[in-house]
Amino acid sequence: MNHQFYEDWILSDQKLNMAEKKLLSEHLDSCEQCQNLKTGWVKVESALQSAKYVTPAPGFVTRFQTFQQTQTAFAHRKQAIQSLIVTGVSMITILVAFTIWFFLSYSPANIIVNLVAIATGVIRTATLFKTDLVLFLRSSSASFPFLFIVNIVGWAAIFLILWLLTIWRFTQHGVKNNEN
């Protein structure tokens, strides 16, 4: 006998019409297997329908807030470490790549000659710059050196504040905020 048809009716959510109910009833009278299934399902469905919500122990929200703070601190620390690692690895990679390219492109003798040339060039440029600067400042108005120093110090202060703000933001909010 094909029980599938009747099983579907027994286990279905949908209401049966009168004809279907009659057919099912007739089948149940003669089929012990389906009758058992119906008995079992009626009991289980009744238990399911009377089942209540299980609630958490009191103080769940407070416990979640503590959990949230711990997880947030952990996530921020993780993001900061990841950022430092990415920056460090990038810088080392660039440095290594540049060094390899440099040693492959020039012979050691060339490198020494060039280094000496660069060093003397830097010293000569710095001396010239210093001389030019002194001449320029002497030829300009009396307040100019003061304004020049204020300008330099001002920009330095802006960059210092930006740097400190960035460090503060990293420690307080992590590198990324509210993101996975």
């Binding site: 099983e7 286990l11 299934l37 079992g40 399902w41 009991k43 289980v44």
Partner: peptide, 8 residues
Amino acid sequence: RRKMANVY
């Protein structure tokens, strides 16, 4: 549903 009924 069938499994729950059978386990019951």
